[in-house]
Amino acid sequence: MKLTGAVAIVTGASSGIGRATALDLARQGASVALVARRQDRLDALVSEINEIGGTALAVPTDIADRAQAFAAVAATVERFGRLDMLINNAGLMILGRVQDADIDDWDRMIAINQQGLMAMTKAALPHLLDAARGDRQVADIVNVSSVAGRMTFPTAGPYSLTKFGVNGFTEALRQELAGQKVRVGVLEPGKVDTELDSHNNDEILAHIEENFGGFRMLDPQDIADGITFMVTRPAHAAIAELWAMPSAQA
């Protein structure tokens, strides 16, 4: 399904999966609102999208702040007049054993991975429902979760809590919107070569290197390909769940 004339919001668009997805959707013809905290990176990505003939809007936002999340959606609709796709990609992963953890880190993950995602969804939903009744006859929500949302391991307890929650929220919303032409799907990546690890301490980083340094990780583009696949299906077809892993990890 062509995306010409459609409008997408991508959260976490300043790097990694979000950046690759924004570029991909722009190449497919969508106008893209880039939502993240780092203004300089968003401005650079707007320029890059313009250079390939696309259209993008930088919307500097901390989605953990509910008011900012709602304002980002409002700014997008004010600029482009509609909203057809919401890609909830922004996320934070801070690993560590529960007994040693800083509870403030848990609060930060919950604020971004769950509350931010839900605020963006709540703000976007009326516009997505309007779009689904319009010319394209379909709209999309894609929530980027993690394999840690379907299995867990030591040091990942709080992070897995947030991603198991994303999976549950996504499935409930999918059922609520069934029949209203808003498709809701979740994509669960395995290990991807992004900045996600960078918030962890040296001990955790060494542990990650020990476990994942010996094989080829996924590239952000691999996940962007999956997201683009989900939102370009014909209007009668929906992808509810996509699990993408490095071959060596699977």
Results as ranks from 00 to 15, higher is better:
Thr11Gln: 00
Ala240Ser: 14
Gly157Pro: 03
Asn201Ala: 14
Ala139Gln: 09
Val73Lys: 07
Thr11Cys: 05
Asn167Ile: 12
Ala139Trp: 10
Gly81Lys: 06
Asn200Leu: 04
Leu83Val: 06
Gly213Ile: 07
Tyr159Leu: 09
Val10Trp: 06
Lys163Pro: 02
Ile17Asn: 00
Gly149Gln: 07
Gly165Thr: 14
Leu3Pro: 09
Gly116Ser: 07
Arg19Cys: 02
Asn211Tyr: 01
Leu187Arg: 13
Gly226His: 03
Phe212Met: 14
Ala101Leu: 14
Ala69Gly: 05
Met85Tyr: 05
Asp100Trp: 05
Ala74Ile: 08
Ile17Leu: 03
Val32Cys: 01
Val10Pro: 04
Glu78Trp: 02
Phe229Val: 13
Asp62Thr: 12
Asp140Gly: 04
Ala90Glu: 02
Thr121Phe: 02
Ala13Glu: 01
Glu48Tyr: 00
Leu45Cys: 09
Asn50His: 15
Gly190Lys: 03
Ile103Gly: 10
Leu25Glu: 12
Ala90Asp: 00
Arg37Ile: 03
Asp130Ser: 14
Lys181Tyr: 01
Asp104Gln: 13
Val186Cys: 11
Leu187Lys: 05
Leu196Met: 15
Leu95Ser: 08
Asp219His: 12
Ala178Val: 10
His207Ile: 15
Ala237Tyr: 13
Ala69Ser: 13
Ile223Ala: 01
Thr232His: 04
Met85Ala: 12
Ala123His: 02
Asn200Asp: 10
Ala235Pro: 01
Ala250Asn: 11
Ser146Gln: 05
Trp243Asn: 15
Pro154Tyr: 08
Met85Lys: 07
Thr232Tyr: 02
Leu42Ala: 05
Ile112Gly: 02
Gln115Trp: 04
Leu125Glu: 02
Leu25Trp: 03
Gly12Ile: 00
Phe70Tyr: 15
Asp197Arg: 15
Ile87Val: 14
Gly190Cys: 07
Ile204Pro: 07
Asn201Tyr: 05
Arg183Lys: 12
Asn201Arg: 02
Ala33Cys: 10
Thr232Lys: 11
Gly179Pro: 04
Gly91Tyr: 01
